[in-house]
Simulated assay, not measured.
Amino acid sequence: MAWYTGDVFYDTALLAGFAYVLIIALAAKFGQAAYGRFGGRAPGIKFEPRLGWMLMELPAPLVFIIIFFQGQNSDQLVPLIFLGIWIIHYSNRGFINPLLMRVHKGSKASFNISVVIFGWIATAAHGFFSADFIANHAKHLTPEWLTDPRFIVGIIIYAIGFMLNVHSDAVVRNLRSKVPNPNEPRYKVPYGGGYRFVSSPSYLGEMLSWLGFAIFTWSLAGVFILLVTMANLVPRALATHRWYQKQFEDYPQNRKALIPYLI
C-alpha cells in the first residue's frame, strides 16, 4: 500500500506541509509560542485565552467538514467513523476545553495573535490533508479495515492519548476555584493522573492521539499533524518543565518533562 496518493496537487501540498514542519521546529529554538505562561511579554494583539484557543482551532473542523463532504467516499462507513472521531476530538479541543477553562481573575490577555495566525496555517492544512485523503484518496478504508491490526492498534493508542489529554486538562482546570478569586496563586503544581510522571501529560496525550491517528488512517496526513504537534509541543514541554522547577522549590524531582522515566 503506497502512502503517496499520486495526485500531483495533494502530494506537492503535503511536501510543502512537511517543509512548514521544519520551519516550526527551527522557530522553537528561538522561544515558545506566545500563549499561557509564555505569552505575557510578547508584543502584539492578544486575546483572552478561551477566545484565542477557539479561534486557533476553528479551521481544523471547518476545513475538514467542507472537504470531507465533497469527497467521493464521504458516504462510506469507515470515512464516516473517522469523521465522527474528528468531530469529537475538535469539539473537545476547540470548544469544550476552552469554554471550561478557569482564567485567573485579573489576569491580562496573553494569547498572542501570532499564535492564532500560525495555528490557522497548521490546522487548515491538517484539516485539508486528512479530509481529502480519507474521502478521496484512501483505497484501503473499506469495512475490512476495521479488523486490520493497524486500525486496532492505532485506535487504542488514540483513545489512550485522548483520555490522558482530557483528564490532564481537568486536573489543571480544577487547580483553580470555580468562582474566580484574585487572591489565589495564578499557578500551582498539579498532581495526580499523568502528572505523577511528567510535567506535561496533556502534551503527551495529544502526541499519542495523533500517533494513533496516523496509524489507524495509515496516511502521511496523519504523520504531518503528528510532526507538527511534536515540533510545537516537545520544546514547549521541556520549557514548561524548567519553568516549574524554577518557580517551585518543592517540585517533584522524579517527575520528567514529557515521557515517563525518560525525558
Rank of each mutant, 00 (worst) to 15 (best):
T5P: 10
D7R: 03
V8A: 15
Y10H: 14
L14E: 04
L14S: 05
F18R: 08
Y20D: 09
L22C: 13
A25H: 03
L26W: 08
A27S: 13
Q32S: 12
Y35P: 03
Y35L: 13
K46A: 00
F47L: 14
F47E: 03
L51I: 15
E57T: 12
E57G: 09
P61K: 04
V63Q: 02
F64I: 02
I65V: 15
I65M: 07
G71C: 09
Q76T: 09
Q76S: 12
I81N: 04
G84V: 05
I87E: 11
S91F: 12
N92V: 10
R93Q: 12
P98W: 00
P98R: 02
H104C: 06
S107M: 12
S107W: 00
S110A: 12
N112V: 01
N112I: 01
I113A: 13
S114P: 03
V116L: 05
G119A: 01
A122P: 01
A124W: 03
H126Y: 12
G127W: 02
F129Q: 02
S130P: 04
A138Y: 01
K139H: 14
E144G: 15
W145G: 12
D148T: 10
R150W: 13
R150H: 11
F151N: 00
I155P: 00
S168A: 15
V171S: 07
V172R: 14
R176F: 08
S177P: 03
S177A: 14
S177D: 13
K178T: 15
N183C: 04
E184H: 09
P185Q: 01
R186V: 11
R186F: 06
K188P: 10
V189P: 07
G193R: 07
G193K: 11
R196Q: 14
S200K: 02
S202A: 15
S202L: 13
G205F: 08
G205L: 03
S209C: 13
A221W: 06
A221H: 08
F224R: 07
F224W: 11
L227R: 08
T229Y: 07
L238E: 12
L238N: 12
R242V: 10
W243N: 00
W243M: 07
Q245E: 12
Q247V: 11
Q247L: 14
E249V: 13
D250H: 14
A257D: 06
A257R: 00
Y261I: 08
